[in-house]
């Protein structure tokens, strides 16, 4: 099992130009990061291009990762997510795509709650569970799919301002719950 410390070590060695560390890092993390890109971009070829960009960024910017900041997986996920969202938004989506109701809305109990034992993960799952399902769904949609306020408002058939109010209140509640 690859531990966060292992991944941190791999990133540190990437910063020194260690190619074998880069290969090991890819092996340990590419499924997760590809999954993140694919969730956001939907198309495999797009997600593959994004993943290439992600790892090039990681290879070249490894020295900017600081131990003691976000955990290594959170850092890698943030790089992947941000680059995938950049790509998503660079190509203007056709308007009718917005009508496709996402499967996220209908999902009942969160998979996180049942599957993840680790403290942090279990907490955010439980904390999302304290929100109304639609509001939790909006947070997930924004994080996992890179949905914008416009898209979320459309998806849940509420005015844009209402969506923003919902989401900001949800974030405040979440934070409160996470710190409990």
């Amino acid at each position: 099992m690859v531990t966060p410390e292992d991944i941190e070590g791999m990133i540190a060695r990437c910063a020194l130009g260690d190619r074998s560390a880069f290969a090991a890092l890819y092996q340990a993390t590419s499924s997760k990061l590809f999954g993140i890109c694919l969730r956001i971009l939907k198309e495999r070829s797009e997600a593959e291009d994004a993943l290439q960009e992600v790892y090039l960024r990681i290879w070249r910017k490894a020295e900017s990762y600081k131990a003691g900041g976000p955990s290594p997986m959170a850092w890698l996920s943030t790089v992947a997510r941000n680059l995938a969202i950049d790509r998503l938004r660079a190509k203007a989506p056709p308007a009718d795509e917005l009508d496709d109701a996402p499967e996220l809305v209908a999902k009942g109990p969160t998979p996180e709650q049942s599957a993840v034992a680790a403290g942090e993960a279990a907490r955010i799952g439980a904390c999302l569970g304290e929100l109304e399902p639609e509001r939790a769904g909006a947070v997930r949609g924004a994080y996992l799919e890179g949905a914008t306020y416009d898209e979320l408002a459309n998806r849940y058939s509420v005015p844009l301002n209402t969506m923003r109010t919902w989401l900001r209140r949800s974030l405040i509640k979440l934070k409160e719950c996470l710190e409990r």
Partner: peptide
């Protein structure tokens, strides 16, 4: 804190990329 907390939402997300991608990335890097 948010990066950390929200990243765990993707805990279940994983999909193996195609094998042909690694040589491409390696060559580019």
């Amino acid at each position: 804190d948010w990066q950390e907390g929200l990243a765990t939402l993707a805990d279940e997300v994983a999909e193996a990329p195609p094998a042909a991608l690694w040589p491409r990335i390696e060559a580019a890097a």
